[in-house]
């Protein structure tokens, strides 16, 4: 680890003042940042420890729905009774990721901002434009089994590794950002940027801004959800493919559907074209199959990750079938 200045701050003003400094980063649970600093992939000049800020509440919103403070620990969020009851897909997604110890440390803000697990990015030496702008992408011609097939560009096909964020995308979560003059709210789908030819620009977060909360809109009565994750071993592993499904039901009819994919895309990936097929429909295997085909239409697989396309279709199909059978309590 390279030396840095350490600041433990008590107010948001201090945080945004200190993070304006070039080379300053925020420390929350540390499970990703300290890893990145130990590997010397991130070498901040200053570390701003925000863990003393009062951002660890889960509150109901006046408009319905919930506001989750960005310092709420992943375990606390997953086991919160209202979240388990109202948004089971979110609890399932969080609990399918990492290990209990890591989830005890990890925060909502840190989970949103965690860096990719791309091995070329993490090895510190391979050409990688995300780590060293302009050096190219080693996955282009190298082994790329774990890489994305959706949203990729010539300069990067690294996946966003989070499970939690896939569920948040399917829930239409809003990210609350503070620190600049105006507090602002950004839909999660717009919060993440496509790599295009600037893969080092990952999110809409600006210098001096910090994530203070995530807002979850209320789900109508009768909504059914499911998170399904497929990975190389049954626990403590990142997703090969995952799907979060949120189906708003009216009796036996799907009114609205939202599907987000993980493990195969450069960001938590929504599939609006496929979702549209399910609006005002009667669930059936055939319909779900067409929906899965549509969801993967834009996929650009290469040799080692071609299997993910078929795998993703089956995961979507299975997640939709499971969700349509689970009634919200």
């Amino acid at each position: 680890m390279k030396p840095f200045r350490y600041h433990r701050i008590k107010t948001l003003q201090e945080a945004s003042h200190l993070t304006q400094e070039p080379g300053a980063v925020i420390l929350a649970g540390g499970t990703n940042l300290i890893d990145m600093m130990r590997l010397e992939i991130m070498n901040p000049a200053a570390v701003v420890d925000i863990q003393s800020l009062p951002l660890n509440q889960i509150e109901t919103l006046p408009s319905g729905g919930f506001r989750i403070g960005s310092l709420v620990r992943n375990s606390d969020l997953a086991f919160h009774p209202s979240i388990q009851k109202e948004y089971p897909v979110l609890s399932q997604a969080i609990l399918s990721g990492a290990s209990p110890q890591i989830r005890n440390q990890a925060t909502v803000g840190g989970n949103l901002m965690q860096r990719t697990r791309c091995t070329y990015f993490r090895d510190g030496i391979s050409p990688c434009s995300k780590r060293n702008p302009g050096t190219g992408c080693s996955a282009e011609h190298g082994y790329h089994r774990s890489h994305a097939v959706l949203g990729i560009s010539d300069s990067c096909s690294a996946t966003h590794p989070s499970d939690m964020c896939v569920a948040l995308a399917a829930l239409d979560a809003q990210i609350v950002l503070e620190g600049k003059k105006e507090k602002r709210t950004v839909p999660i789908t717009e919060f993440y940027l496509l790599p295009q030819n600037t893969p080092w620009k990952e999110t809409a977060l600006e210098p001096a801004e910090i994530i203070t909360a995530v807002d979850l809109p209320e789900l109508p009565e009768g909504t059914r959800t499911c998170y399904l994750k497929v990975r190389d071993r049954s626990s403590y592993e990142f997703a090969l493919v995952s799907a979060a499904v949120v189906l708003e039901f009216n009796q036996n009819q799907i009114q609205k559907a939202r599907i987000a994919l993980g493990g195969i895309a450069v960001k938590p990936w929504r599939v609006p074209e496929a979702e549209k097929l399910l609006h005002h429909s009667t669930p059936s295997k055939k319909l779900f199959q067409t929906c899965a085909e549509t969801a993967l239409k834009g996929a650009k697989p290469k040799k080692d990750n071609e299997f993910k396309v078929e795998l993703a279709k089956r995961v979507i199909l299975h997640a939709l079938s499971l969700a349509s059978k689970t009634k919200k309590e």
Binding site: Y6, R8, L27, G30, T31, I34, D35, V47, D49, Q51, P100, Q101, I102, N104, Q105
Partner: peptide, 13 residues
């Protein structure tokens, strides 16, 4: 009382 990983925690924290 909560299990955490000491390799991913700074002592100053």
């Amino acid at each position: 009382d909560v299990p955490v990983l000491s390799c991913l925690t700074l002592a100053v924290e």
